Amino acid sequence: MTRTEQMAPVAIPKRNQSARLENWSRAFYRFRQSWLSMIGLAIVIALVVIAVLAPWIVPHPEHVVGGTNTAAKFQPPSASAWFGTNALGQDMFSLVLVGSQVSLFSGLAVVFIALVVGMIVGAIAGYFGGWIDEILMRLTDLLLTIPSLILAMAVAAALGTGVWNMIIAISITWWPAYARLVRGEVIVKKEEQFVVAAHALGANWVRILGRHILPNIVSPVVIKASLDMGFAILTVASLGFVGIGVKPPTPEWGTLLSGARSYMPDYWWTAVAPGLAIFLAVLAFNLLGDGLRDVLDPRARR
């Protein structure tokens, strides 16, 4: 063998695209095996489409911005008002449609903010350990000792009403759970051979976390986030129900349910419509999260 042949660069084999497609195909096949997960996925897609198209398909847009029609108050469900009307004569179907935007957006924002903050804190604590880990985890434990809903109510009351204040209040109580999860996964992964090899090649901690460790712990984080979406929507509705979340005339499922409690059981439809929307959203995201767990977590596969 000549010197030129010895110094020739070695070609790094590329990942087989067909193998990747086959893995995705198998994952989707496992997901399809659960008809409950497919129902959850269908409901989630329907809710997202409705939330996106709500401003254009709402039958009574004037009711969404605070318009009233007291002459038509407390009309039962009919062809002209599918979910009936409330004490102000507003169409409940229109309010529930537009309320899906606030509820779904708030739930998604809460999970996203909590996930980002929790991943940063958990990754740093798990990777460096020592006094950094002690400080960050003691702060995390302190927040975990307080019931999340009580803490969210206290923070929301301090910040004031509004969508973003409510999102921030709930996110403050949710990120510790993600920090604990990510810390445990990072502690395990940083001892793997591919991380040791990255250290030997001189990679800094940012590259090791961002390119080697975090991409390999995505599965449990995605599973938790999908399961938390339903509970985030429920927490948003809870704050609206007790009066420290979104304020009228902005429609939100919890606020609509709170306004209807005074008229039960005579005018039951005013509570059934937003209550059913909350129920479907929470159920759908839990079913979807259960299906993703079966696909992404080998230990949980049936």
Rank of each mutant, 00 (worst) to 15 (best):
residue 151 L to K: 02
residue 152 A to V: 06
residue 152 A to K: 03
residue 155 V to K: 01
residue 156 A to V: 12
residue 156 A to R: 09
residue 157 A to C: 11
residue 157 A to E: 03
residue 157 A to L: 15
residue 158 A to M: 14
residue 158 A to S: 14
residue 159 L to P: 14
residue 160 G to D: 04
residue 162 G to P: 05
residue 162 G to R: 07
residue 162 G to L: 09
residue 162 G to F: 02
residue 163 V to M: 15
residue 163 V to A: 12
residue 164 W to K: 09
residue 164 W to V: 10
residue 165 N to T: 04
residue 167 I to E: 06
residue 168 I to Q: 12
residue 172 I to N: 04
residue 173 T to H: 13
residue 173 T to I: 07
residue 173 T to C: 12
residue 175 W to F: 15
residue 177 A to Y: 14
residue 178 Y to C: 00
residue 178 Y to V: 02
residue 179 A to D: 13
residue 180 R to H: 04
residue 180 R to S: 10
residue 181 L to H: 02
residue 182 V to N: 01
residue 183 R to S: 11
residue 184 G to W: 03
residue 184 G to E: 10
residue 186 V to L: 09
residue 186 V to N: 13
residue 187 I to R: 12
residue 187 I to W: 00
residue 187 I to F: 01
residue 188 V to P: 03
residue 188 V to K: 15
residue 190 K to I: 07
residue 191 E to H: 15
residue 192 E to F: 07
residue 193 Q to G: 08
residue 194 F to W: 13
residue 196 V to Y: 06
residue 196 V to H: 08
residue 196 V to P: 04
residue 196 V to K: 12
residue 198 A to F: 13
residue 198 A to W: 09
residue 199 H to F: 08
residue 199 H to R: 15
residue 200 A to C: 14
residue 200 A to Y: 14
residue 200 A to F: 13
residue 202 G to M: 09
residue 202 G to K: 11
residue 204 N to K: 11
residue 205 W to Q: 07
residue 206 V to S: 12
residue 206 V to M: 12
residue 209 L to M: 15
residue 209 L to H: 11
residue 210 G to P: 11
residue 212 H to T: 05
residue 213 I to L: 05
residue 214 L to G: 04
residue 214 L to M: 07
residue 216 N to L: 00
residue 216 N to M: 01
residue 216 N to T: 03
residue 217 I to P: 00
residue 217 I to E: 00
residue 218 V to N: 01
residue 219 S to D: 08
residue 219 S to K: 01
residue 219 S to N: 08
residue 221 V to L: 00
residue 221 V to T: 01
residue 221 V to S: 03
residue 221 V to M: 08
residue 222 V to T: 12
residue 223 I to L: 01
residue 223 I to E: 00
residue 224 K to P: 00
residue 224 K to D: 01
residue 226 S to F: 03
residue 226 S to R: 01
residue 227 L to R: 00
residue 227 L to M: 15
residue 228 D to R: 02
residue 228 D to H: 05
residue 229 M to R: 02
residue 229 M to A: 13
residue 230 G to C: 08
residue 233 I to V: 14
residue 233 I to F: 12
residue 233 I to E: 01
residue 235 T to M: 10
residue 235 T to E: 09
residue 235 T to K: 05
residue 236 V to F: 14
residue 237 A to V: 06
residue 237 A to L: 10
residue 237 A to F: 08
residue 238 S to L: 07
residue 238 S to Y: 11
residue 238 S to C: 07
residue 239 L to P: 01
residue 239 L to S: 13
residue 241 F to T: 03
residue 241 F to L: 05
residue 241 F to D: 02
residue 241 F to Y: 15
residue 241 F to V: 02
residue 242 V to Q: 09
residue 243 G to A: 11
residue 243 G to L: 15
residue 243 G to Y: 11
residue 244 I to P: 02
residue 244 I to F: 06
residue 247 K to L: 09
residue 249 P to K: 04
residue 250 T to N: 14
residue 251 P to T: 08
residue 251 P to N: 07
residue 251 P to E: 02
residue 251 P to G: 05
residue 252 E to T: 04
residue 252 E to V: 13
residue 253 W to T: 00
residue 254 G to K: 04
residue 256 L to E: 06
residue 256 L to P: 02
residue 257 L to E: 04
residue 258 S to L: 10
residue 259 G to V: 05
residue 260 A to I: 06
residue 261 R to G: 05
residue 261 R to A: 14
residue 261 R to D: 03
residue 263 Y to R: 09
residue 263 Y to A: 13
residue 264 M to E: 05
residue 265 P to N: 07
residue 266 D to W: 06
residue 267 Y to K: 15
residue 267 Y to W: 10
residue 268 W to P: 00
residue 268 W to D: 02
residue 269 W to N: 04
residue 269 W to K: 05
